[in-house]
Computed example of a mutant assay.
Amino acid sequence: MREPGTPGAVAPDGTVAMLVCAAQSGALLVGYLQVQFGRTDEYGREPASSLGLLCLIVLGPPLLLFLGTVHTFLMTVPADLAGHAVARRTNGVLWQWQGGCVAALGAVYAAALAAAGAPFLYSWAWISGSGVLPLLAVAWFHGAARKRGRPYSRGEVWFRVLPAGFLLTVAVMVACGAALGTGAVGAYEAPRPTGEAMPGVWASEDGRAEVRLHADGRAVLSGVPYGDWEEEGRCDGTGTWSYASGSGAVRGTVDFDVPGADCPIGPWTVGGTTERLELYSLFGDPDGGAVRILVRQESD
């Protein structure tokens, strides 16, 4: 660790910033998984496989430490050094300049992500926010080291940060549990349309698949996916359709019968919202397959 009061991200290896970033990333990951397992998936997919969770448990800690190290050298170290440099020249408040440097760095990294297609403001908020807690921890350790007259050893840093990271994880889990319990998240309910609402044109967003459901029961299919978890094909043809209402998570399904076509299409489930009806079907392994969606098109 550097001498108390000197600029820089605490230790030569960035121990404090690295551990705090790893702890906050781990807490967010635990909260995300808790919400995913506790919410109702609108397409009936499994939240995660047991093998995936096992890999996450084994590989998660070293991966979090690696990400914490990368974050330290890309965010905490530059913001800390730049904040000290500017504060010395302007006689300003250090934490304000550090916050400004974090926001500026976040904007630079967010611009790079925006060039790849990510939303700029969303990326900027997350990247900038990720730099706040590590810098606060760095400032706390510097202040505590000044008060006691000697720097913290690496072991002392670990002994203090790890329990704090555990408490942060518990707090995130409690917050996510409250959100799930109150219905703030995870309260999706599929629409329950009548059979009379089903006729019309249903098409995929990429335009490759389309189904025309006629009120007299006829169905015209073009490029509609079918298959099982090993293989997927496309079906073209004319046949019939029927609608069956359901209960629970599945509120309704549409079955197709296409005589003469070698494409055994299974039932498609009604999803989406009342304002934006969808038909969807799951393809591939339930733990890692894909969902194909047909959206009800507006009438001309």
Rank of each mutant, 00 (worst) to 15 (best):
Y122M: 07
F283G: 00
D285W: 04
I57A: 15
A9P: 06
K147Q: 14
L180Y: 06
A215N: 12
A179R: 12
D287W: 13
T194C: 09
E210H: 08
T90F: 13
V185P: 00
A116S: 11
V20I: 12
S245W: 06
L277G: 02
T15V: 14
E46W: 09
V170A: 14
G14R: 03
L28E: 01
T76W: 03
A110T: 01
L279K: 05
R276Y: 05
G252F: 05
S247R: 11
A118H: 00
T253S: 12
E230G: 14
G14E: 04
A197T: 08
S245F: 05
G92L: 11
A22C: 11
V132G: 02
W126C: 09
A9I: 10
V132S: 01
L136H: 04
A116R: 03
D206T: 13
T253W: 06
R192N: 13
V77N: 03
V224M: 14
A27N: 02
W126N: 07
C55S: 15
S204V: 06
M173R: 06
F159H: 13
P78D: 08
W229M: 13
A144T: 11
G181E: 02
L33H: 04
H71L: 08
M18G: 11
A164Q: 08
P62T: 08
A144V: 10
D13K: 09
E205Y: 12
R234P: 00
T182R: 08
L121P: 02
A111N: 01
P4V: 10
L74N: 00
F141P: 06
A104W: 00
